[in-house]
Design a protein around this nucleic acid. Structure first.
Lengths: 228, 228
DNA sequence: TAAAATTAGTTAATAGTGTAAACATTTTAA
DNA sequence: TTAAAATGTTTACACTATTAACTAATTTTA
């Protein structure tokens, strides 16, 4: 059944609230998000927002879920290419991760930054959303594995025990070692991007040179992963 | 000249304020820090704190500088050992980084988390403090370099341009390549620790198994860095 | 030692914040 | 047309940082 008029304008209002919130976050930082500010910019009063979100935390949770979806989409889009070479595809994935972070700072800080005052993410909701992004990173490595070109590690019992919960969570049926590689790759990429975005790599955050630094690192990361 | 009585109790009060702040941060998160809360716990009123810090931001800055000093000290302490083998010393450094992060969550989130609402770190003050920590990471690698056991990379002109500012900032006179290795190592360690602390690696943040995951990663990181 | 100056605290007030309750208005459905 | 549901508003409360004005204690100086 098609949505009624009322449902449509309600959905539009929700989108407007979230969009306004994202603008405020990218302008003043995630923690400075203010319901009153959002409402004012929309020509409403703050309590009206409670018709759409039960609390500020609920709004933040919705923003986080959206952010994960957006990141997953960006990663997926990076693989929609004719390119066959695995190393280039991995590189594209890593660069897409960094590019998304640089162009979606509000969303990035929502996901990976220190949470907002007194906000505690409901893992039941944000967990699955986060998994979607990681799955995209795994997909790329899985393709390499399918071609028999991935250097698999031997896993200690302790490692296996830690990785096993991910199997179910991600719904990935390949070897645990692929998950392990995806996680460590993610950590390295994330480490670089995180330091860059928080200004720990340079006083001039917008330095172009960091891009080449990043690419070189991903390059050597890829080299060590591929057999041939 | 020895400090007067007044200077002494003033210093003690400042310490008490900072200590109370750290407790609040580790309890409720960095952004939830409240001057009123601190004052209440100390049996004072909030405005009295302004005799000791010009603003909440100034207090935060002081806490950040303290945190960097504490991290640098922990890293330095990890090297005060009879152990001669380089890989074990590097491992000790990395583990000390992680251990410090796990045991000083308040300080860690102050340094590496998303900044507090509307707080902007004065780089002139926090920058040098941050450098102190990085220097400790470099020191370990420099020892390897001095023994001629470090695999040095060739640096592209773009990379050199990015790394050069660090030379002056850190006061390190060895090859740029050592700085590059220290930075990328730091990024990888930081990536792992950051994901772990923010609960991205597991639903159960206190899982012991993550430790073995971390150690295995640092191991292979070290392997690739040492020649022979 | 007495007076002056500095320091450390207070209370009161301003301008923000999220959120709950009560009420009014508009839109939809019977 | 009437009842119900949805969407607002205003008001109020308990928080937050910060400033100004004032008081009391301490230290310094004459």
């Amino acid at each position: 059944m098609s949505p009624t008029r009322r449902e449509r304008v309600r959905a539009e209002t929700i989108d407007e609230i979230k969009e306004t919130a994202r603008m405020q976050i990218s302008k003043n930082g995630a923690a400075a998000l203010s319901l009153r500010g959002i409402a004012a910019e929309m020509g409403m009063t703050a309590p009206a927002l409670y018709r759409y979100f039960d609390s500020r935390d609920d709004l933040v949770t919705a923003l986080i879920v959206d952010a994960y979806k957006s990141l997953a989409a960006a990663l997926a889009a990076s693989q929609e290419t004719e390119e066959e070479s695995h190393d280039k595809r991995i590189m594209a994935s890593a660069c897409a991760y960094r590019a998304w972070a640089l162009t979606h700072r509000a969303e990035y800080s929502l996901i990976f930054g220190t949470p907002i005052p007194n906000y505690h993410a409901p893992v039941g909701i944000t967990g699955p959303a986060a998994a979607q992004s990681l799955i995209e990173l795994i997909r790329v490595l899985d393709a390499v594995y399918q071609d028999g070109l991935l250097t698999l590690n031997e896993l200690s019992p302790a490692l296996i025990k830690m990785l096993e919960p991910w199997v179910e969570k991600l719904g990935y049926t390949g070897p645990l070692s692929v998950i392990q590689l995806a996680l460590t790759n993610w950590a390295k990429i994330h480490g670089l991007v995180s330091l860059e975005l928080n200004g720990h790599l340079s006083d001039v955050p917008e330095e172009v040179n960091i891009g080449s630094f990043f690419e070189k690192e991903i390059c050597s990361l890829v080299e060590r992963m591929l057999t041939d």
